[in-house]
Design a protein around this nucleic acid. Structure first.
Length: 336
DNA sequence: AAAATGGGCAACCGCGTCTGA
DNA sequence: GTCAGACGCGGTTGCCCATTT
């Protein structure tokens, strides 16, 4: 038995919005608000549109402060980092990018960023319209190993991690991001930022850019990824049988903060100092990796009684750099 | 110049979750 | 506790435009 449609599809208009419809919706919401009921909204306005369509139009286009146009390198970095960390949770990723919508981010990833990153692989494949297509075609990470066990998103993330790994020279031991393992800077330089960055409310007096927030969150989320994607990483181990890693069983579990490598992949290695919103701590190429008490993370999950495989088990970012509604939204979503 | 192809984006669809009765 | 309606999200589709042949 199917669900009752939210609106009468026979009488509802579909397709692109006209300027008149935009104006009607915009002026009404600006004057009256949504009234807490999107389904009823089009009737009040006199629009022959589905409520969901109105909501989408408002959120993605008409809402104030929507930012259209090119994404900045900082935004690229945030998107890539978060995608690798949490996958295709576009609303969460978009929440870290003020003015961007999940649809925007999703489209940007699917049409540009993904190609820019994954397209650099030696076995460049033709464009798939969706990630699901890639999975549907039976592309596997290894001959004989079924890819179906992993989501397309997870597959992409593995690919990205592999990609990043392959760009990382072997003589730079990859830090292990696994519970119990030390997290160290790839350059051997001790982390300049302590846990306090995350645990001290109001401790950060200086303004924090979106990119910095992304980086800070990113460091934490790589840990989360290790939890979320244990299975995926295991698959990557198999996948990476041909990879350069000497001890693939361990190294395939590696999810590290590699902003520099991301930059390399995204922009062909033309990394200019200071252009990354303060991400690098000691020069452009140094990868800053947070020294994190992993046990704390796990204990947090235990406290919450949430399964580590649950996407909600994000961890405790007790981190409030500056009033930032987007970030607060994120925090609230994850019950931080 | 015309047709074919591909890319980008806006919008739709369906499902899971939330909320209130 | 159950159910129905509404919301929110991610995946997918389809159209339009630019580029290539």
């Amino acid at each position: 038995m199917g669900r009752a449609p939210c609106c009468d599809k026979a009488t509802v208009k579909k397709g692109p919005w006209s300027p008149e419809e935009d104006a009607m919706l915009k002026s009404y919401i600006e004057e009256h608000g949504t009234g807490g009921n999107w389904i009823a909204l089009p009737h009040k306005i006199g629009l022959k549109r589905c409520g969901k369509s109105c909501r989408l139009r408002w959120l993605n286009y008409l809402r104030p402060n929507i930012k259209h146009g090119d994404f900045t390198p900082e935004e690229d970095g945030v998107i890539c980092s978060l995608y690798i960390s949490i996958g295709s949770r576009w609303s969460i990723i978009a929440a870290q990018l003020p003015g961007r919508t999940d649809n925007d981010v999703k489209n940007y990833w699917n049409t540009k960023l993904k190609k820019r990153l994954l397209g650099r692989r030696k076995d460049h494949r033709h464009h798939h319209h969706s990630a699901a297509d890639a999975a549907a075609t039976g592309e596997s990470t290894n001959d004989g190993e079924p890819a179906a066990a992993l989501s397309a998103s997870a597959m992409e993330r593995i690919q990205l991690c592999m990609q990043l790994q392959s760009t990382h020279h072997q003589h730079h031991p990859l830090p292990l991001m696994w519970p119990g393992c030390n997290v160290v800077s790839g350059s051997g330089v001790a982390s300049t930022q302590s846990n306090n960055s995350f645990n001290s409310n109001g401790g950060s007096s200086s303004s924090v850019t979106v990119a910095e927030q992304g980086q800070l969150m990113n460091d934490q989320q790589h840990l989360m990824t290790a939890q979320l994607e244990a299975g995926a990483a295991a698959a990557a181990t198999i996948d990476n049988g041909l990879a350069a890693s000497p001890s693939s069983a361990e190294n395939s579990n590696i999810i590290i903060s590699m902003e520099a490598e991301l930059q390399e992949l995204l922009y062909g290695g033309a990394v200019e100092d200071g252009s990354r919103g303060g991400k690098a701590v000691d020069g452009g190429s140094a990868v800053q990796v947070q020294q994190v008490d992993v046990a704390e993370w796990w204990s947090y999950d235990d406290q919450q009684g949430k399964s580590s495989s649950s996407p909600v088990a994000v961890g405790c970012w007790d981190f409030t750099p500056e009033p930032n509604t987007a970030f607060l939204d994120y925090a609230s979503v994850y019950d931080i």
